[in-house]
Write a protein that binds this DNA or RNA. Structure first.
Lengths: 236, 236
DNA sequence: CGGGACGTTGACGGTCGTCAAAATTAGTGG
DNA sequence: CCACTAATTTTGACGACCGTCAACGTCCCG
């Protein structure tokens, strides 16, 4: 598999500052580079792993966009998150050695597979890596607390406003526009994540558009009034 | 502070198999014992930590019952979980060095404070401890996925049935009855956790009682028909 | 024994889900 | 490149579920 000319390495990955600890020495960075196993392309619609798959790797997203979702016994579906470049997925697999959700690419994507056993080995020697792994997991726990607040106590407009602001903020941190974004997921997937039906998502988008808060053309969203969205999320 | 006769040690803690990795050597267990800093009593209604508090410790619950909750800027409240003996809380603080939620005792409780810096130090040397910490965090992530499914796609009856089954199962794992339990939290706190209002909790309890599924007297709950609860959660 | 917190129940209304149909877009194969 | 089908989105009408408001009942603790 040596047919690519570009060296695969965290050291020259432009997502480094997002998924790696900062202030690593050259040597330590090289050691981390060394445990990146496979770099793989995932086509839109394909899954990186499925519920029940044996857990071996964490995955760093290099490019592309994923959703993670769980399905209950009786077929209920819940999107638990949307992940973009620089984010780490697969943490759900650690506890039982089997993945507890599906990770599906919403657009063509590239990931770096990082064998978790090697991460544990190396993090015993590189303190910054150890702490970084802990922070990533803690961040995910805190993020999910926020989703619980959203699902447990917000109305449809508030949920969608919070969702849009969160997406825009994360995209902006990656160098994209603060106000223009392309949704990589369907209304149904947004609804599943937000605990609403796709019709409600569509209607709420239409209402935002009527109110001049956003401009929506299918999956192209232009946020015209960020403050208004914030006011919807956090009514004084 | 040497006024207690009983030695405080994981080695003689009856919650050990719940909060410690299994198969540790005597020596390793002693080393873990050594990092347990303070054992503290928390009275009902008092908080172990609050949102914004500096993060220093993880806490193992020896006895008692806690809730964790977050409050949004505009005063919305969300209970993110209920924790009982043998469970670890405080993981939310790792990512930013500040706690991101409140932990409040719902009955008089005792906790062991474990300085996280020392946990990281020791887990570099004791592989089982390192992996155990990872598993605890991953378990919390997976648990929260389940809560998201509940909040995002279940109706009131289903949520309460799932909640009761979960509580009963965890209490049973601690040697209590499978079918009888005492709720340590108010209807309002149950409602906050389940994304429902307290009146809905009360009404749903009444409906379960009418149907002969549970016997409810204030906070005493007797599950008369576990299968019926499971059928409510997972309709065929 | 009294007061406050907690719980129950009823009536009513709003938000969002359900069902349905039509419009628009995306994807596929000829 | 176009035709055709499938998938997605929008919009409307209606109803169910749960929230809101209110009153009352119960328990606990000082």
């Amino acid at each position: 598999m040596n047919h690519q000319s570009i060296k695969i390495a965290c050291s020259n990955c432009n997502m480094r500052e997002l998924c790696m600890p900062i202030g690593l020495s050259e040597g330590d960075l090289d050691r981390i580079d060394a445990i990146i196993g496979v770099r793989k392309k995932i086509k839109r619609g394909e899954s990186l792993y499925l519920n029940g798959d044996r857990f071996n790797n964490l995955y760093a997203i290099r490019t592309g966009f994923f959703k993670t979702c769980i399905t209950s016994e009786d077929g209920r579906d819940q999107v638990t998150g949307f992940q973009m470049a620089g984010e780490i997925i697969g943490l759900d697999g650690i506890v039982n050695d089997y993945h507890a959700c599906d990770a599906v690419a919403l657009e063509d994507a590239e990931i770096c597979a990082m064998p978790f056993a090697q991460i544990e080995d190396l993090s015993r020697e590189v303190n910054a890596l150890q702490h970084h792994v802990h922070k990533i997991m803690s961040r995910e726990i805190v993020r999910e607390h926020g989703v619980m607040l959203l699902l447990g106590s917000m109305r449809a407009e508030e949920r969608l406003a919070a969702f849009l602001l969160n997406l825009a903020q994360r995209l902006h941190a990656r160098g994209f526009s603060q106000s223009e974004l392309i949704l990589r997921m369907t209304r149904e997937e947004i609804g599943s994540f937000l605990g609403l039906k796709l019709e409600t998502i569509s209607r709420t988008f239409s209402r935002f558009a009527e109110d001049g808060i956003v401009d929506v053309k299918q999956r192209h969203v232009h946020i015209l009034n960020t403050q208004a969205l914030q006011d919807i999320v956090n009514p004084r």
